[in-house]
Amino acid sequence: MKIVVCAKLAPDASDIEVRSDGSISLDRAEWRIGSFDLQAIEAAVRLRDAHGGSVTALSAGPQRINHSKLRKDLLSRGPDELVLVAEDVLNGADTAVTAQVLAAAVRKIGAVDLVLTGEGSADLYFQQVGLQLGELLEVPAFNAVSKIEVKDSGVRIERSLEEETEVLELPLPAVLAVTTDIHTPRLPNMKEILLAAKKPVYEWSLADLELENAPEPRVEAVSLRAPRPVERKRILIEGSPEEAAQSLAGYLVKEGVV
């Protein structure tokens, strides 16, 4: 089975600095593999280990994702090779642009049976790239996938929905966005880290992807601001349930919440 796993490389959320005017600085943030994508990588590597085939990691983003430590980090987690589409025009790309670029890259990789993505990206978390990718590739696409089994020539998947678990059988190829609890991602050991430096990395430009139309963003980011911290009210409501409900409602109205 030929598997492609998409992983976004993004600034580490714990390194975000909020400036005094509420704007956000990522200047000092270390870039990492999206935490939700680690589960997709783990799922891909386990499927390959159980059924043979190969895992290609795929990532699109600005130039700085083409960094040797990030490459090793990705490859030390099990994929056999890495495809990077690293151009600065992809900085802050919206889900539509990302999905178009990834779709073109998956086509160029060719003969792919299964594409896995994380639940959402670690920074923007729109949870849309996987589904849009399936649409563009014209193959079945599902999110919330918590289990994948290879069955006959297709896969049997479980989707964790709010109240129930849905079980589906699909033909391949398909695109699946996995949940965070599908597997605990492995921690790379030194052997895998050393091996990672020897695995092939393909750097493709947007021109290499031969896109019919230049990818068009659908979203325009107007501004990005950290919410202003609000002092807690520290109001203690006492009394019988009826009285308490009454006074709670009173406070909510007074604060303009309801």
Binding site: S68, K69, K72, D73, L187, N189, M190, I193
Partner: peptide, 15 residues
Amino acid sequence: TEEQELLIQSLEELL
């Protein structure tokens, strides 16, 4: 080295 950084990151998470 990058290998040392990756190893220690992995070890920190393991611990």
